[in-house]
Amino acid sequence: MGAAAQSAHGAASVTVRCPLFESIIERFDVERRIVVCDLGAARRGTVALFGEFRCRLEILALPDLLAPLKACESPREAEELVRDRVPSGSDEPIDAMLCWNLLNYLSPELIAAVMAVLAGRLASGGFAHALIEYSSLQMPARPGVISPNGAGQLLIESDDDNLCPAPRYSLGALEKCLSGLKSERAMLLGNGMQEYLFRRPPD
C-alpha cells in the first residue's frame, strides 16, 4: 500500500519529505532567536527539532478545540476561543507558523477566524506552513498528529479508520482565508497531501 493510499484509508503512520518545510528550517540561524507557533498538539519531534535553535515554541493545541469551534455561532466567538489558547506574554513576532493538518477540518469561515487572531503576529517575512489533503477525496474523520521526523520530513500519524470528505483546499482558496498572507509555493507530497507555504510580505 502506497503512502497516498494509506492517507486515504484512515489509520496509518507515514513519513513524508516536505521540501517547503525544510526550506523554512534552513533559513533559521542557530545563533538567532526564533519564535515558532504550532497550531497542533505538542509532540516530541517538534520540541526536539526546535530545541536545536534559540527558540520560543508556542503550542496552541487547537485540534482539542475542533468541536467547540464548530459550535460557535459567530466568528467573534471562535476568535475568543483561539485567543484563550495563545500563551500569555506572546508579543514577539512569529517567524514560522505550523498549520499542519488542522485546516483540513475547518471551514473557510473558521480558518479566517483562527487566522484573524494569529496572522497579525507573523513577523515581516514570516512563514505559515500548511498541509492539506489534496489527492484523496477522503481523509480520517479525526485529525491525526504530525511532527518533524528528521531533516525535512514529517511523520503523519492517524489512528482513525473512519473517513470524511476532504475539503481539498487550493492554494488560492486558502489564501483568501489567511488575512494578509500571500501564497508562495505549493508542492504535492508523496502521500498525496499538498504542502503550502504562505508568507507575510516583508515590510
Binding site: 498538539a41 509532540r43 520540541v47 530545541g51 520560543r56 515554541l57 508556542e58 503550542i59 493545541a61
Partner: peptide, 20 residues
C-alpha cells in the same frame, strides 16, 4: 533543554533559548 513525550497535554510556550 526541554524534552517532551508524545501524549503529554500542553498548551503554552516552551522557551529553549538559553539567553531568554
Amino acid at each position: 533543554r526541554v524534552s517532551l513525550e508524545d501524549g503529554a497535554q500542553f498548551n503554552g510556550s516552551i522557551d529553549m533559548d538559553p539567553e531568554t
